[in-house]
Computed example of a mutant assay.
Amino acid sequence: MKLLASLFLPTYPDPPGLKVVSNGVAVARHLGSALDAVIVNVDIPDVSNALSSFLLDLPAKIREVNAASRSRGKELLELIAAEAQRCNVPLTSQALKAQPALMGDVAAKEGRYFDLCMVGWTAKNQATQATAEEVVFSSGRPTLILPGDEDVIPLDHVVVAWDGSRVAARAVADAKPFLERASTISIVTVTDEKVLPREDTGDRLAHGLVARGFSATAESIHAGDNEIGAALQDHAIRINGGLLVMGGWGHSRLRDFVLGGATEGILSDLRLPVLMSH
């Protein structure tokens, strides 16, 4: 069965880094999947009155912002179409629109129709970070968060962050297409962050993966004074991991995210591709 992957590209207030386009296509090629490019343009409604129109020319400013968003979206679609053709990746595309506060919500709802969601992440770009959060926690699909400023292929060394929790188990199951294509799988457990269900929890997962025909080993690390998200990424980079797999912990109260420590650390400072499941 061919996988269907989606790549979400918000265009307001700033688009993601251009590397997200080539990275998304490269991942689809790696998985042998079809790709749907989803542009999310802003649609700011005209809420002006006669006074604001006279003093600020607000309707014209709104039209200008909406038009700029659509223009960026068109450019991104052209770039991804050219890249998909070059890499022989089946591509469909669509352009959605949403009010500024609902761009991530629109992306998450569309993501439910795919096997894998991909979102870009760019430092100091609130649009990409907010979209990533919403898709991770509201789409119901595994979400691959891609750096927007550097290449992400190869993904042949997969690092799994494991603590024996439900969300970690969900992430391992969702990572199967990546695990099947990996030459090396490293299970890493942080031992000084929380009480673990058993002392050998990482070894237990590694043994199960080996029994299924994968090449997997387990090791434990200490976060020490580091934030757990930073510790996991530091370790993955140190052992030349190409992809970090982890569960996403968090929930939403009146649309204000309350994130777990590891999740918050990843979403605030992404340094390698992370597949996150909730």
Rank of each mutant, 00 (worst) to 15 (best):
D163Q: 01
E78Q: 12
V167Q: 10
S220Y: 09
L102A: 05
G164L: 00
L31M: 05
A132M: 07
R198M: 09
F214G: 07
L116I: 08
V106N: 08
L209A: 08
S268Q: 12
N88I: 10
I187Q: 04
A231D: 05
A218Q: 10
A132E: 12
H157K: 13
E180P: 03
A127T: 07
T191Q: 06
P15D: 05
L267T: 01
N125D: 04
N66Q: 10
T189K: 13
P10R: 00
R181I: 01
S93A: 13
C117L: 00
I62G: 04
A218M: 01
A81K: 07
T143E: 01
V195C: 02
G247T: 02
G250T: 04
V210T: 06
A95Y: 12
P177T: 08
Q129E: 15
A60M: 07
A168H: 10
A101S: 03
E264H: 15
V190L: 06
G164I: 08
L18C: 15
P142C: 04
A182S: 02
V190F: 04
I187H: 02
V20M: 09
S268K: 09
L4P: 06
I239F: 03
G224R: 09
L259S: 07
A68E: 13
A37Q: 01
D200C: 04
A67T: 11
L91G: 12
A173W: 03
Q99C: 11
P197N: 05
R238I: 10
T11F: 13
H30M: 09
L58K: 14
G229I: 07
R181N: 09
F257D: 04
S69F: 05
S52V: 14
R255I: 09
V135D: 07
L35K: 06
T11K: 06
E199N: 02
A130Q: 13
E193C: 06
D269Q: 08
G73F: 02
A182G: 06
A168N: 11
S52Y: 03
L155D: 02
V274D: 01
